Simulated scan of single mutants.
Amino acid sequence: MHGQLLLLGIKGYELSSNEIHYLSKIQPGGFVLFGRNIHSPEQVRALTDSLRDLCDIPPIIAIDQEGGRVTRTKEIGNTPPSAEQLAQSGKPDLIAWHGILTGLVLTQLGINMNLAPVLDISYMPDADNALRGRCYGRDAQEVINNAGVYNRNLIRTKVHGCGKHFPSCGLADVDPHHKLPTSNKTKEEMLQSDLLPYTALGSELSAILTCHTHFSELDPDTPGLPASLSRNVVTRLLRDQLGYKGVVMTDDLDMGAIINTYGRGPDVKMAIEAGNDMAMICHQTDTAEQALASLQELSPYAIDDSLKRIRKLKKKLAKTIAFSRDRWDKLNDEIMELRIETLGEEAARDQHDSIANSRSPVEDY
Rank of each mutant, 00 (worst) to 15 (best):
I111R: 07
N112F: 09
N112R: 01
M113F: 09
N114R: 14
L115N: 07
L115E: 01
L115T: 05
L115V: 15
A116Y: 12
P117N: 11
V118A: 07
V118I: 14
V118L: 03
L119R: 00
L119N: 00
D120P: 01
D120R: 01
D120T: 06
I121P: 00
I121H: 02
S122Y: 03
S122I: 02
S122Q: 15
M124P: 00
M124N: 13
M124T: 05
P125Q: 09
D126L: 11
A127G: 01
D128N: 10
N129Y: 01
A130H: 02
L131K: 02
G133N: 06
R134E: 06
G137S: 10
G137A: 07
G137E: 05
G137L: 12
R138Y: 11
D139W: 05
A140Y: 01
Q141K: 13
Q141D: 14
E142R: 10
V143H: 02
I144G: 00
N145F: 13
N146G: 02
N146D: 14
N146F: 03
A147P: 01
A147E: 02
V149W: 04
V149M: 08
Y150V: 03
N151Y: 02
N153S: 09
L154Y: 12
R156T: 13
R156E: 13
R156G: 04
T157L: 08
K158M: 08
K158V: 04
K158S: 15
K158D: 12
V159P: 00
H160K: 06
H160E: 04
G161L: 03
G161H: 06
C162T: 14
K164S: 07
H165L: 11
F166G: 11
P167I: 04
P167G: 05
P167A: 03
G170M: 05
L171A: 10
L171K: 14
V174T: 15
V174Q: 06
D175P: 12
D175A: 06
D175S: 07
H177A: 10
H178C: 05
L180W: 06
L180D: 11
P181N: 05
T182F: 08
S183A: 14
S183T: 11
S183L: 03
S183V: 12
N184K: 01
N184H: 13
K185M: 12
T186I: 07
T186G: 04
T186K: 07
T186M: 06
K187S: 00
M190H: 00
L191M: 15
Q192R: 10
Q192E: 15
S193A: 15
D194S: 08
L196H: 02
Y198H: 04
T199C: 01
L201I: 07
E204P: 00
E204F: 08
E204D: 15
L205G: 05
A207C: 12
A207P: 04
I208F: 04
L209Q: 08
T210H: 02
H212K: 12
